[in-house]
């Protein structure tokens, strides 16, 4: 199946999970259990105020593991915040025990043998992590890993678009879009209005959404210097107000 079709299918599952309320990262976590064939999931986000805030846990086990990660300050969920995916197919393996000397045995004691931590990130923007926990050891197969990546991207998009057209059911655009202009434009907006890269991307996406344009087209206009943030028609002294632009 083409990847874009699978993305749509997974989005439908997330919407279904939300049962009429606006789709949020927790719903993505819940969908993860069924499609990636794991037993528990959790989503933690990084906020300016705290390096790790757990916003969703599927059950008691996930909650305990998140707490463990937080207390020990190590584990796949910590590595994935900055280093990319951390895939631990068997926490009893020497490689895992060496990599996470405190977390690995403690997690096994809680009945978890495999952890797959996927970063919620877009280049240099680190938004959080999606943790998948399973009591049985073993790697994810290709389909499961693909689904996990797609869900992580969906979670990123939901975090970036929170507050933008929330609840109107529109599927958010991919966060990790393969068009370099989107990421170049993000960097340009950082320089234009002096905000963090995360906020720059939020505004770029909000602009595309509000103008009903494709993200890549808006980005291409920014890179070609046909569009500035805030647009020249807006007061340049009011950089804080851009969601309405």
């Amino acid at each position: 199946m083409p990847i874009s079709d699978r993305r749509l299918q997974l989005w439908d599952l997330v919407v279904e999970q939300a049962r009429g309320s606006p789709a949020a990262v927790g719903h993505v976590g819940a969908v993860g259990i069924a499609v990636v064939c794991v037993d528990a999931t959790a989503v933690a986000v990084t906020l300016a105020a705290s390096p790790r805030e757990v916003v969703y846990t599927s059950d008691q086990v996930a909650e305990e593991l998140e707490e463990l990660t937080m207390t020990l300050g190590e584990g796949p969920g910590v590595d994935a915040l900055t280093d990319g995916p951390a895939l631990a197919a068997d926490l009893n393996d020497t490689s895992c025990q060496l990599r996470w000397p405190m977390f690995a045995p403690a997690a096994v004691a809680l009945g978890v043998r495999a952890v797959f931590a996927l970063p919620l990130q877009v280049g240099g923007i680190h938004l959080g992590v999606l943790d998948l926990y399973r009591s049985e050891p073993g790697s994810l197969d290709r389909e499961q890993f693909t689904d996990a990546l797609l869900l992580a991207d969906t979670a990123c998009a939901l975090l970036l678009d929170a507050g933008v057209g929330a609840g109107d059911g529109r599927r958010p655009e991919e966060a990790g879009l393969q068009h370099p202009e989107v990421h170049q434009a993000t960097g340009m907006i950082v320089a234009q209005i002096g905000v963090s890269a995360a906020i720059a991307l939020v505004r770029l996406r909000a602009y595309a959404y509000a103008h009903d344009q494709r993200l890549r087209d808006v980005a291409a206009n920014v890179v070609a210097r046909r569009l500035r943030f805030p647009p020249e028609t807006r007061a340049a002294t009011d950089p804080g107000d851009h969601h309405s632009a």
């Binding site: 280049g123 923007i125 990421h183 170049q184 960097g187």
Partner: peptide
């Protein structure tokens, strides 16, 4: 690679 693109855009601007 995405990070590099972001940094490229920032420097370019």
């Amino acid at each position: 690679r995405v990070l590099i693109e972001q940094a490229k855009g920032l420097l370019a601007e």
